[in-house]
């Protein structure tokens, strides 16, 4: 019994060390900008760089659009597949996993070929078009997470009967999705949204190849040119990502209990 506990703790400690030691080392290094003493100079330098604020703001805005577009695409799709075409679900599962299998590099080269300035739909011909293309790419990248979150959310409610109950009282399809389905899977959607946000904030490949001033390329640029700032930035983006993850947990706890009692 006691030795079992010892081994369990040992495995846990090894696992934790694997994550914590590099993080602690990075943090320690980020504090050593001033010679001979610890300081937050690296952080001050990061925050005073106007490019930091600009690229971060850009990524946050793209992230928000990605979330909105993702919800608009995924929620009705999952709803109608579950309600009307349940036989399509295995296919949906497969399709939504593709972004995890296909490298982002392949995706973005495909985009550039298809939507390049000499193509029929020259998205990359203008800054605005490229922003749209970037958002669409992020919606695709986040699809596996958004789809699973929304699908799990819908599993917990009886969408068939709730839909019929609303229909018989005169509600149309739009009212049903907006007033019944969406509010009942809000927590699931939020967890999908924060995952999406975390992905968009750190994404490098697509933003870089589409030449957009996003946070990912900025991180990489700093990393190649400076010594202490990249460590500080790594810690900052860790905090942002963890904050997003933490929000999922917090919201899950504070969400109203929506599951119906059946006794």
């Amino acid at each position: 019994m006691k030795s079992q506990k010892f081994w369990a703790w040992l495995v846990f400690a090894l696992g934790a060390a694997y994550f914590i030691i590099p993080l602690a080392a990075t943090f320690e290094f980020s504090l050593r900008m001033r010679r001979g003493e610890y300081s937050f100079d690296a952080y001050a330098s990061v925050f005073s760089d106007p490019q930091f604020a600009a690229s971060f703001t850009y990524s946050v805005i793209v992230g928000l659009f990605t979330i909105v577009v993702g919800i608009l695409v995924v929620v009705p799709a999952v709803y109608f597949v579950r309600l009307r075409m349940p036989w399509l679900r295995p296919f949906m599962e497969f399709v939504t996993l593709l972004p995890l299998v296909i490298p982002a590099l392949v995706l973005v080269y495909g985009y550039i070929r298809l939507y390049g300035s000499s193509s029929l739909i020259p998205f990359t011909g203008s800054v605005f078009g490229t922003n749209i293309l970037l958002t669409c790419a992020y919606v695709t990248l986040a699809m596996p997470y958004m789809y699973r979150a929304v699908d799990n959310g819908m599993r917990t409610i009886d969408i068939g009967t709730l839909t019929e109950a609303a229909q018989i009282m005169g509600a149309n399809q739009l009212q049903i999705i907006g007033k019944i389905i969406l509010p009942n899977i809000l927590v699931a959607i939020l967890s999908g949204a924060f995952l999406t946000f975390a992905i968009v904030i750190g994404e490098f490949t697509i933003a870089s190849l589409l030449n957009r001033p996003a946070f990912g390329p900025y991180l990489v640029g700093i990393g190649t040119n400076r010594a202490y700032e990249p460590a500080a930035l790594a810690i900052i983006s860790f905090i942002i990502t963890w904050g997003a993850m933490g929000m999922i947990n917090v919201l899950g706890r504070f969400a109203p209990r929506t599951s119906a009692r059946t006794d």
């Binding site: 009886d158 019929e164 109950a165 009942n184 109203p256 119906a260």
Partner: peptide, 8 residues
């Protein structure tokens, strides 16, 4: 049968 009240 399953009540189908809107939980939200």
């Amino acid at each position: 049968q399953a009540y189908a009240l809107f939980p939200n």
